[in-house]
Amino acid sequence: MSEAVNLDVLDELKELLDDGFPLLVERFVADGQERVDKILLALEEQNPQLLYTEAHGLKGSSRNIGAGPLADLCGQLEAMGHANDLTAAETIVAALKTEFSAACQVIIDH
């Protein structure tokens, strides 16, 4: 499971934020869940613009927190949203859901 999040990045962030780290974790989980929900909604509504925005947002946070695989999945969805083509989105979204949970678990456990 350690592949879901780069632990070195997490260590650096822990050092950087110090007392703020638990809050950072909390915000990542909460904001991330919100974005994942919106991505699901976008898929349901077939709304590429919404998919693009939310996937982009989650991609940035994921990169910053060291969740590389999650960020890559977000990137794929972002591109689909940008290209107005959601045909292959469903599989990726499913993978994203799993990857997000995995990443959250690593971060919380850390």
């Binding site: 950087l16 904001d31 946070s61 910053n64």
Partner: peptide, 8 residues
Amino acid sequence: DSAVDRMI
């Protein structure tokens, strides 16, 4: 707008 990125 992203709290995580803002905090970092």
